[in-house]
Simulated scan of single mutants.
Amino acid sequence: MKRITLVALSSLMIMGQVFAQIKPKANSEKSKTMKEAGKTNHYTFSLSDKVTRQEVTFQNRYGITIAADLYLPKNRANEALAALAISGPFGAVKEQSSGLYAQNMAERGFAALAFDPSYTGESGGQPRHVASPDINTEDFSAAVDFLGLQSSVDRNRIGIIGICGYAGMALNAVAVDKRVKAVATTSMYDMSRVMAKGYFDKLTPEERTKTLEQMSQQRWADAEKGTPAPSTNNLPEKLQGNEPQFVVDYFNYYKTPRGFHPNSINSNGAWTATSPLSFMNMPLLTYIKEIAPRPVLLIAGEKAHSRYFSEDAYQAATGQKELMIIPNASHVDLYDKVNIIPFDKLTSFFNEHLKAGKPAPKEKVTAYGSVN
């Protein structure tokens, strides 16, 4: 029982459970009310005086209204810019890491869109706090739809940045969406792999079966009640002192003024208890090789518990690819520590690959410091 609990906690804590146009009218009164109910002016970072931030909404292919913030550099407002769609971490909202990334990339000359995935934050979708490997992949392509319709964007120069659990969805989207010219990830998690196999693939077939049996029974309970039950295995409200370091790191971001946001599931809520079902049945990175010949940049912390996801994705990808290991950095360090997040590298990567006619770089691994 202790082993099952540890595997579930370590692999799924990141999920918080055991296992177009500017401002268009919302597609339903329900989703409109959702955005208004969730509205807050709280951001975990200050707005830069070098950019503008505009609230926008757009719809994905399933008719769900996605809420986002569009960041533009002030000194290039009349220019058609290279653009980036950004989301993550898993269970976070656009006022946290993705917005910080978008602002920093806008300062560097990009149009950058930070969005709340379906069913989370200010975006629409019922029930709340659900994740889907398909729909959340689609959210990235819907963001590309939106960016390609903006006069401030050159639609032939669009890239994607995925953070943490949405990094896997970002790679998944780029595999099928050939409009995207380059993709970068930071602190990547493959959510389908970790839910199907556990952390470091240690979930036994018996443990997997038991988890699926529990969630299968939970579906009947949810159907009878008429609403999905929330998970009970979320970040603690107070540390007891015996938690794994990665849980401490998550807590120190999501549960403290550093990164707390009332709309963030990891700060102030819970995923539904049955959310892992589709992830356990539908591998995200099946077609990662089809990203080629477009370039992939994978960034991970040297000390991140999730580092192996980026390393394995690097091995699985083909063509133009680069793995960058940040010395002494943890998984959560790449959420908001601007002195550690390699924004200069992200800038040079997208400047190079969101231009036409550039030669393809050679495959390489970039490692700084001593990495074993």
Rank of each mutant, 00 (worst) to 15 (best):
G159Y: 09
N27F: 09
K210D: 07
P293M: 04
N233D: 13
I14Y: 00
R219C: 09
D333L: 07
E311V: 13
G38L: 04
S264V: 00
N172G: 11
S48G: 11
Q17C: 10
F251G: 00
A317I: 02
S310M: 07
D249P: 00
A92Q: 02
L334F: 05
T274F: 01
A112S: 13
G38T: 03
I158C: 10
T185R: 03
K39E: 13
V176H: 15
Q214H: 10
V296A: 10
F140K: 10
P205W: 02
M169H: 15
W220G: 00
P361G: 04
M13E: 01
K197D: 10
K202T: 15
G121Q: 02
M282I: 10
I161R: 02
N27W: 05
I341M: 07
N136K: 12
N136L: 15
V56K: 14
K32V: 04
S97I: 06
A82G: 12
A167S: 11
F115P: 02
A167M: 03
S46Q: 10
S330M: 07
Y62N: 14
I265A: 04
P133L: 12
Y308R: 11
I22F: 09
L12H: 03
L72F: 07
A80I: 07
A8W: 10
I66R: 06
T65Q: 14
K197A: 12
G16M: 01
